[in-house]
Structure formats: structure tokens, C-alpha cells
Design a protein around this nucleic acid. Structure first.
Length: 388
DNA sequence: CGAGTCTGTTTG
DNA sequence: GTATCAAACAGACTCG
């Protein structure tokens, strides 16, 4: 992946850069106007003074940092109704982040063939995942519509296509497998909507009576509570009160006994053995589990509960990548160009795409027959990273 | 002036 | 009373 690199479209990114520049200038003008004086919008310290001293916006419920009131996204959201400058600042942050970190940075790193060669570190993370640096190609935007467009700047070479293979619900499937939660395992086997299923069990109602909000709550819980999300944060994410959130969490663990037991077992191991491990034996030491400091100790517990699942995912991905190298690269069909934790990207001549798709799906879905879970892989094919 | 920290934003 | 895990990076800022 490092040697092959991934091709970008510098003309596309240059065009985007100019668009963004124009709009940022306009935003900056508007913000200065609303503030009544010039200042560096990118400086949280200066911005904080403008918002909370000059404009005297309410500070009730605003988090403090070392240097004053916080201007983070969450805090700005609370101020939105008090002043039109807030929305502009949020927009300024979004556009400048995308321009500075991606649109302008990526073309500088390309070689003469317009390919970017990231470094994939194999000995950095505490769970066994890869990490990507210079540039980090594992955090290219996708969640916001504006940011997602940047993916159009990642393209295949002439006559080639990009093929993506993503594990569906990787984390939850691994949690089900490692805890041997037969109910959850069967739900996956039957291809059920897992968030709706969770909601129906949590709220003790039939599957077809699950409301949109109930499904949304179950989804947040499926991703967060597994690793120790507090009732407090769950309440703020769902917009409900603390007691209801606490009730949700209790219900969740009551209806997912095997997962609750698995977490307990993992924590006990961390305390007694001083480490936790993946299904295949990759270890992470857990010295902080015995810390006398509550915050450090509780943080260590959450990290310990998370590691076997995230780490087993990482083990499986690495095993899959080796298999794919053997079946796809060594046979001359195509090259791996990126790995993003639960997802692999291949570049190949377009006439090989169908064959590669078939190999990817089969090899990745059958990478761990020893685990009591069926893995599911989604394949997409396109000319650029936005279309897949 | 360079190294390191802080704040804030991006991803799985 | 404390509270989701795992990463990288830009720009501002501080320190020696």
C-alpha cells in the first residue's frame, strides 16, 4: 500500500481550494463585521474573548478550559440562538478544517504520477490496529456532505477502478462472537436490522412496533454503552434526561447478559493477570486498572473492555490483508491501496473488478471459521472514492 | 527558534 | 462527583 500509493486529482482539489478560499473570505468579513473588531477567528483564546466579553453571550452551562470559556463545537451549539455570529463561526471552522487539513495538504504530498504514499504504522496503537501518517488517509471526511466531496479527489488510474470491501457491523459481530451471545449471533445470521432488534429487546416490545426514536436510542447504545458510556452522556446524545438514560442502559445489559458477563470477565482478567488479550492472544497490559485515582482507573477499565473486541477486529483485518495479497496481488489481478480498520480498498484494471469482488467477499467473510459468527462484507466499485 | 502542549476537528 | 474506545493533524500558544 505504501509503495503503490493512491492517486489523487490535483485539478479537482485546486478547484475546490479556490472555491473554499472565496467563501472563507466572505465568512471572515461577516464575522469581523458581527464582532465589531478584527481578530484571529482560528484562535480559541481570542474567539472566547469576543464571544463572552465583547458580545457578552451567556456563559451559563459553558465548559471552562484552562484559559477561559470553551469555544468547542458542543458549546457553540448552545449559543446558536443568542447571536448570528455563532453559525458563521461554525461554518468557518468546517471550511477551514477541510481546506487546511485535506484540500491544500494532499496535493503537496503527491509524487510525479499524482500518487500519495502514506505510512502505515504497525507498532503504534494499543489494540493492534494500523495507523496512517503523513498523510493520515484513515480520516478522510465522509460524515458531512461538504467533507464527503473531498473523496472525489481520490481516483483510479486510466482504465482502472477502485473496489472497496467493508465489513458490515464488524464491532457488534465481534462482540457477539467473543461473548457467545447466541441471540445476537442468530440475529446476525438472520440478517435482522440489529439496532431495531436491540430496541425491541430493550423496550420489551415486538420488532414491528419499534419507533424511530427507539431505534435511534438503541443505535447510540450499541456503539457507546458497550465500552462504558455514562448515563450522563447518553442522555445528552439522546436529548432525554439522566434517569431515562440510566434506565436504557440497565435494560440493555439485562437483555444482553452474555455481553455484560464478557465485560466483567475481561475486567477480572485485567485485574488478576495485569493484561487483556484478543481472541488470538495479542496482549495489552493494563497497569492503570489498579490506580488509586478514580478517573485513571475507570478509563483503564473502559480501555480494557474495548481492547479484545477492537483488537480481534484488527487481527482479522491483518489476516485478511495477507490472504488478499496472496490471492489478488500475487496473481496480478490488482493492488491494495488503503485499509481503514474495517474496510479495504483495491485498485485494478476494470476488467478484473468482478473477479476481485468475488474473491474479496469470499475470503473476508470466511477469514475466521473458528468464530461463532457469520461475517458480512459489502463490495462497491467506482472510478473515485466518493462513488464507492 | 524549535519542541511540546492545548484546543478543536476529522475518521473507524 | 468523577465517565465510550482507538487514532492524526492544524493552528495557536507557551516555554526554555
Amino acid at each position: 500500500m505504501e509503495k503503490k500509493g493512491v492517486k489523487i486529482d490535483p485539478d479537482f482539489l485546486d478547484k475546490k481550494s479556490k472555491e473554499f478560499s472565496l467563501y472563507l473570505e466572505k465568512l471572515e468579513k461577516d464575522i469581523i463585521q458581527l464582532a465589531g473588531e478584527g481578530f484571529n477567528i482560528s484562535s480559541p483564546l481570542q474567539l472566547s474573548k469576543i464571544l463572552f466579553e465583547k458580545l457578552a453571550l451567556p456563559t451559563k452551562g459553558i465548559k471552562k478550559t484552562k484559559n477561559g470559556y470553551s469555544t468547542g463545537q458542543k458549546e457553540l451549539e448552545k449559543l446558536k440562538d443568542y447571536h448570528p455570529i455563532i453559525a458563521k463561526i461554525e461554518e468557518f471552522r468546517e471550511y477551514s478544517k477541510l481546506k487546511n487539513t485535506y484540500i491544500d495538504a494532499l496535493p503537496k504530498l503527491a509524487d510525479k504520477n499524482n500518487r500519495i504514499h502514506s505510512t502505515f504504522n504497525q507498532d503504534i496503537t494499543s489494540t493492534g490496529r494500523l495507523s496512517s501518517t503523513n498523510p493520515n488517509l484513515q480520516n478522510i471526511p465522509i460524515r458531512s456532505e461538504l467533507g464527503r466531496q473531498i473523496r472525489q479527489g481520490f481516483i483510479s488510474d486510466n482504465n482502472n477502478v477502485i473496489i472497496s470491501a467493508d465489513y458490515s457491523q464488524f464491532e457488534l459481530r465481534l462482540a457477539a462472537a467473543l461473548s457467545n451471545d447466541t441471540g445476537l449471533i442468530n440475529s446476525f445470521k438472520n440478517n435482522e436490522d440489529i439496532h431495531s432488534k436491540t430496541a425491541s429487546e430493550m423496550f420489551n416490545i415486538p420488532l414491528d412496533e419499534v419507533s424511530k426514536d427507539q431505534r435511534r436510542a438503541a443505535k447510540v447504545i450499541n456503539f457507546g454503552v458497550l465500552y462504558g458510556m455514562s448515563a450522563h452522556r447518553l442522555a445528552s446524545e439522546l436529548g432525554t434526561n439522566y434517569y431515562e438514560a440510566k434506565h436504557f442502559i440497565d435494560n440493555y445489559f439485562n437483555s444482553r447478559k452474555p455481553i455484560a458477563d464478557f465485560i466483567q470477565k475481561t475486567l477480572l482478567k485485567a485485574e488478576q493477570e495485569g493484561y487483556v488479550e484478543t481472541f488470538y492472544g495479542r496482549q495489552r497490559p493494563t497497569p492503570d486498572i489498579k490506580s488509586s485515582n478514580f478517573i485513571i482507573r475507570e478509563t483503564a477499565k473502559r480501555a480494557a473492555a474495548n481492547m479484545p473486541i477492537q483488537g480481534t477486529e484488527a487481527d482479522l483485518m491483518k489476516r485478511a490483508m495477507i490472504k488478499i495479497h496472496k490471492k489478488i496481488t500475487k496473481t496480478g489481478l490488482g493492488d491494495q491501496i488503503l485499509q481503514i480498520h474495517d474496510s479495504i480498498l483495491i485498485e485494478s484494471p476494470k476488467e478484473n473488478a468482478a473477479k476481485i469482488a468475488e474473491i474479496l467477499k469470499y475470503e473476508m467473510e470466511n477469514i475466521a471459521p473458528e468464530l461463532p459468527i457469520n461475517l458480512k462484507v459489502d463490495i462497491n466499485i467506482g472510478q473515485n472514492w466518493l462513488d464507492i
